[in-house]
Deep mutational scan, measured.
Amino acid sequence: KLPPGWEKRMFANGTVYYFNHITNASQFERPSG
């Protein structure tokens, strides 16, 4: 399970990334916590 605010998303080319809808942060590494 991801930390609060984070969700797993995917680009059109299939690349997975993680987006935080609270802070609008995005990253390729899975957030810890």
Rank of each mutant, 00 (worst) to 15 (best):
M10A: 09
P31V: 01
F28N: 09
G5H: 11
A25K: 13
H21S: 14
Q27H: 04
E29Y: 07
T15E: 15
F19I: 08
F28E: 08
S26H: 12
L2D: 03
T23L: 07
W6F: 02
K8P: 06
G14I: 03
Y17M: 06
R30V: 14
R9L: 10
I22W: 09
N13R: 02
P3T: 03
N13A: 03
F19N: 01
L2Y: 05
I22V: 12
M10D: 05
P4L: 11
P4M: 10
P3A: 07
G33Y: 14
K8H: 05
I22L: 12
A25F: 08
F11A: 15
E7L: 06
Q27S: 10
P31N: 01
L2F: 03
Y17N: 02
E7Y: 04
N20K: 00
P3D: 06
S32A: 11
P31I: 01
W6R: 00
K1A: 14
N13D: 15
N20A: 01
Y17V: 09
T23P: 00
S26L: 15
F19G: 01
Q27K: 03
G33D: 14
I22R: 07
E29H: 08
Y18H: 00
Q27L: 05
N20Y: 03
R9D: 01
G33N: 13
W6P: 00
P31A: 01
S32P: 11
F28P: 08
E29T: 08
I22E: 11
F11H: 14
A12W: 08
G33R: 09
P31T: 01
F28G: 07
F19R: 01
G14D: 04
M10T: 13
N24L: 12
V16A: 07
I22N: 10
H21I: 15
P3K: 03
M10E: 11
Y18T: 00
F11S: 15
N20Q: 03
S26T: 15
F28K: 10
A12E: 14
E7F: 06
Y18A: 00
A25G: 07
N13V: 04
T15G: 08
N24G: 15
W6T: 00
K1R: 12
Q27N: 04
N13E: 06
N13F: 02
T15V: 14
P3W: 06
A12N: 10
S32I: 14
K8T: 09
E7I: 09
G5V: 02
P4Q: 10
F28L: 14
N20I: 02
T23H: 03
V16Q: 06
V16Y: 11
K8V: 14
N13G: 07
L2Q: 02
K1V: 14
V16F: 11
G14Q: 04
R30N: 11
K8A: 10
E29R: 04
G5Y: 08
A12C: 12
V16L: 07
G14R: 01
E7P: 00
V16N: 05
E29N: 07
G33F: 15
Y18L: 00
M10P: 02
A25R: 12
R9W: 02
V16H: 09
K1Y: 12
P31R: 01
A12D: 12
F11N: 15
P4T: 09
E29F: 07
G5E: 08
N24T: 07
G5T: 03
S32L: 13
I22A: 08
I22P: 01
N20E: 03
H21G: 07
W6V: 01
